[in-house]
Design a protein around this nucleic acid. Sequence first.
RNA 1: GGAGGAAUGGCCGAGUGGUUGAAGGCGGCGGUCUUGAAAACCGUUAGGGGGGCAACUCUCUCGUAGGUUCGAAUCCUACUUCCUCCGCCA
Length: 426
Amino acid sequence: MLDKNFVRENLDFVRERLGTRGGDYSLDELVALDAEWRQVLLRSEELRRQRNEASEQIGKLKKEGQDTSAQQSRVKAISNEIKSLEETLRRLEEKLNTLLHSIPNLPHESVPVGLDESANAEVRRWGSPPYFSFHPMDHVDLGVSLGILDIDRAAKIAGARFALLCGTGARLERALIHFMLDVHTHEHGYREVLPPFMANSASLFGTGNLPKFAQDLFRVEGTDYYLIPTAEVPLTNLYNGEILDGATLPQKFAAYTPCFRSEAGSYGKDTRGLIRQHQFNKVELVKFADPATSYDELESLTRDAEAVLQRVGLHYRVVALCTGDMGFSSAKTYDIEVWLPSQNRFREISSCSNFEAFQARRANIRFRNATGKKQFVHTLNGSGLAVGRTWLAILENYQQGDGTVLIPEALRPYMDGLERIAPEGS
RNA sequence: GGAGGAAUGGCCGAGUGGUUGAAGGCGGCGGUCUUGAAAACCGUUAGGGGGGCAACUCUCUCGUAGGUUCGAAUCCUACUUCCUCCGCCA
C-alpha cells in the first residue's frame, strides 16, 4: 500500500513510476476522493468539538441543579448530524481503500523498465551446464525409474499437481530442508522459526496477497484461515502492529514450511513433473530492515540464497526483473534461475525482493529510529530455496549414464554418507 | 464441547456515567547532587488522523465491532483472545 499523502503530493512522479508497470490505477479518482474525505472529516470533527463542549456544560449545570433540557436537545441534534457525516466518511473510506489497496508498489529507480520478461536483465551467472555423453532424462522419468517419485499414487490420494516422494527421494527432500536451514542459520545469521502453516486474512492482507489475489489461495471453508502460499506470510506478520527498536535492525528470519497455491489460471503450464505443484516445500528468508540500508540487505539476501546453489554445485543465473514482470508488492526483485538440462534453459528457483514500506504500511510494522521518531521498516524476503525445484534440479543435473544420480557432496552428511541414488523397489 | 473468570499506556495496576487520555508504582529519558557510579530528589515519557509555513490546535483510541445516553474506560449486545475447572485428544 502506498502512502496516500505521498501520492497526493507527488502525483506526477507516482504516475510515471506506476506507468512503467503498464496499467491504469485511477490516481485522479483517488486524489479527488481523498480531498472530499478530508473535507467531510474536518466538518465532523468541528461538530464533535461543539458536542464535547456542550456536554461538559450540561454536566456543570446539572451539578448546580439547573434544568438542561434545552441544551440536551441541541446536543442530540448535533449527535445526529455527526452520525450521518460518519456514514458518509465510512463510504468514502471504503472507496478510497479499495482503490489504494489495488495499487501496486512503485518500482525502484534501478529496476529495468519493460512490460514483460523479455526486458528482464541478467545480472550474473555462476558455474556451467553439465555435459552429458548420453541423452539426459527429465526428473519425472528419472524419479519414477529410480522408484523415488510416484505421481500416479499422489494423484490418487489428492489429485493433479501433487507428488509423492518415496524412500531416498523423501530422504533427499528432508536433507535439503535440513541443509538449507543449517546454511542460513549457522553461516548467514538467520534465526530459525517454525510458524503456523495457516494464516488469517489480516496477515494475508499485510503481505499484499489479499484482497486482490484471493483466487491464488486455498481457504479453509467456513473459517478465516488460509493455507499459506509462502512462509513470507507468517514471517512478515511476526511483527504486525509492533514498533521495533531501531537498534535491533536488521532482523533476519529463516523458516521451512510447506506452501500451498491454487495455481488458478496456470492450467496447461508446467503440467509435467514437480515444477508447479499445489503443495511444495520451501525454506524462506525474511528481513526487517532500516530503509537506509534495505537495498544492501537485498543484495546480501540474494547472495545468501545463491550460496545454497553454489554449495550443491548447480549452475544458475541471477536476473533483475523488469518493472512489468515484478510482483504486486515488490519495489525490486531478483530471480535466481537454476539450469534444467531437460528444458535446456534456466527456471526460477528463488525470488528475492525488497518491498520497502509497502507491506510494513499494510501490516503496520514500524521502528523507532535513532532520533526517536517512528518510521515504517522495510521488509524483504527471498526463497532460500524452493526445495522441490532444488530436488528436481539435482536429479537432472547429477544424473549419470547408468541411470543413477550422484548426490552432491555437501548433502552427503545429511544422507548418512550416501553418495548415489540407485534404483530401489517400491 | 461444557462451566466460570479476565482484557486499561513499554510493564504492573487504580478507576462502575460528567475536565479520566486516564491515579499510583516500575521501567525509559533529561537534570540536580557526586571524583565516578549507586541512592535520593526534580522534571519528562502512548498511538492514529485532520488543519496550520510554524508555534500550535482539533479529533479519535481503555481487546474488536455495534448499541443506549446530552455525555461511556465505566451500562447493554455480539465477537476475539487469554486464564481456571470438567470432558475429549496427538
